[in-house]
Amino acid sequence: MATETTSEVHHEGGHEAFPPFDAQHYPSQIFWFVVAFAILYVLMSRIALPRVGEIKKKRSDTIANELDQAQKLQAQADAAGAAYEKTLADAKARAQSVAQDMHAKLAAETASKRHELEADLNQRLAAAEAQIKDTKEKAMSNVGTIARDAAAAIVQHLTGRPADVNAIARAQSEGGGRS
C-alpha cells in the first residue's frame, strides 16, 4: 500500500498522530473537498435536479390532464346514457299510446259494425215478421173464401139450389165470432 509516504512524514515530524487528527493534510483535504462539493453542487443544481423536477412536473401534468379528460368523457357518457334512457322512455310511452289508440279504434269499429249488423238483423227480422203477418192474414182471408165456397157448395149440394151468399157470409162471421 502507498501509506509509507505519510508514515515517513510522520516519523520525520517526530510524532505519530491519529490520522484523522493529523493537521498536515488539512489544507489538501479542505481544498479537494471544496472542489468535489462545488462540482457536485453545480452539476446537481444546474443539470440533474431541474431535470428531475421537470420529469415530475411533466408526469403530474400528464396525470392531471388525463384525469381531467377521463372526467370529461365520463360526463359525456353519463349524458349519452341519460339521453338514451329518455329516448327509450319516450318511445315506450309513444308505443303504449299508439297501442291504446289502436285498441280504442278497433273497439269502436267493432262496436259500430256490431250495431250496424244488429240494426240490419233487426230490420230483416221486422220485415220477416211483417211478411209472416201478411202471409198469415192473406192465408186467413183465403180460408174465409174457401169456407164460403165450401159452404155454398155444401148448401147447393144439399138443397139443390144456389146458396144465399149473404147468409153464408153472415153465418161465417157469426161462427167466426163464436169460435
Binding site: 489538501s28 479537494w32 457536485l40 446537481m44
Partner: peptide
C-alpha cells in the same frame, strides 16, 4: 494541496452521484 486517496474517493462519490442523477 496534494491529490490524496481521500481526494480520489471524494471525486468518486461525486462521479457516482452525477452518474445516477
Amino acid at each position: 494541496f496534494s491529490f490524496t486517496n481521500a481526494s480520489f474517493y471524494m471525486l468518486l462519490s461525486v462521479a457516482l452521484i452525477s452518474f445516477v442523477m
